[in-house]
């Protein structure tokens, strides 16, 4: 179960998406997420889905690998859907006991489900197709302007890259620790939430101990290899925009403009709607 979480993992293969400059991918993800909140009609959704599927297809990452990542946050997704389903006021569809489902509720729940799913899938594409080193390089350069304000961009980028590298290792370790404790009769499944939380102590203690030891070892190994912060470092793979990145930017911006154009009608009509409502309410 714990291995199903694919966020933060790198999927090794050769594809045009893999070869893109990480800055393109990062900006692309940001813009993609923004567009998700622009449109509120089926045409917009369809555009978003088509765009995402096209990117996934080009990336040569099996779609099953990406959807597997959703399993990890299934609880969050369901919770969002349920909350929106029951707590949105509006025209009543059905009502039982204290709960009421409204037409608006269904609409909002579906919209949220769509947005979250797309958001997770969209952002996992970046990590799946970009090595953490590359990703942090992208962040480092993309956020380079913060250096003017003395932001430790290089160090933060290095921290992120290391965190990403150790996620799979620590997950595997969690799995092994859980098995070791299961073999001693630990029970992670039965009981109420307090009992379940307590049952995790035998897993968390060894996990933290090991994580701290790893951190100490790693710091020593990095120092031994002359790491002394971001200053004075050179890059094995410096970021240089290529022709394909320009093409990607063109595609990306066309998609954004198209999204705005499709979404605009809805946004504008809602704007008038809200004005109208306010006017009536007055």
């Amino acid at each position: 179960m714990i291995r199903d979480i694919t966020i933060g993992q790198y999927y090794q293969t050769e594809s045009p998406v893999h070869r893109l400059d990480p800055r393109v991918k990062l900006l692309g993800t940001l813009l993609f997420i923004i567009t998700l909140f622009l449109y509120k009609n089926p045409a917009g959704y369809a555009l978003g889905i088509v765009f995402l599927l096209a990117v996934i297809k080009t990336s040569r990452v099996p779609i099953r690998f990406i959807t597997k990542g959703l399993k990890g946050i299934l609880v969050v997704l369901l919770l969002t859907v349920i909350i929106n389903l029951f707590l949105t006021p509006g025209t009543e569809l059905v009502s039982f006991w204290k709960f009421t489902i409204t037409y608006e509720g269904i609409g909002v729940a579906l919209t949220m489900l769509f947005r979250l799913t797309m958001l997770i899938m969209g952002s996992s594409i970046v990590t799946l197709t970009t090595t953490p080193n590359n990703l942090t390089d992208g962040l480092e350069k993309g956020l380079g302007f913060l250096k003017i304000f003395r932001g430790p961009v290089g160090d933060v980028a290095m921290m992120m890259s290391i965190a990403l590298r150790f996620i799979p290792i620590l997950m595997e370790e969690t799995d092994r620790i859980m098995k070791a404790q299961l073999a001693r009769g630990a029970d992670f499944e039965s009981g109420n939430i307090v009992k379940k939380a307590k049952a995790l102590v035998p897993v968390l203690v060894p996990l933290f101990v090991s994580a701290f030891r790893r951190a100490g070892d790693l710091a020593m190994a990095m120092e031994a290899r002359c790491y002394r912060g971001g200053d004075g470092r050179t890059k094995m793979k410096p970021l240089i925009y290529k022709k394909r990145d320009a093409i990607a930017y063109i595609i990306l911006f066309s998609f954004v403009i198209l999204s705005v154009w499709i979404g605009r009608w809805q946004v504008i009509s809602e704007f008038f709607n809200s004005l109208y409502l306010r006017f009536i309410l007055k």
Partner: peptide, 13 residues
């Protein structure tokens, strides 16, 4: 069936 894994650190807490 008692099973002791390779790393004792994984079990001592």
């Amino acid at each position: 069936v008692g099973l002791v894994f390779q790393y004792p650190e994984h079990q001592l807490f």
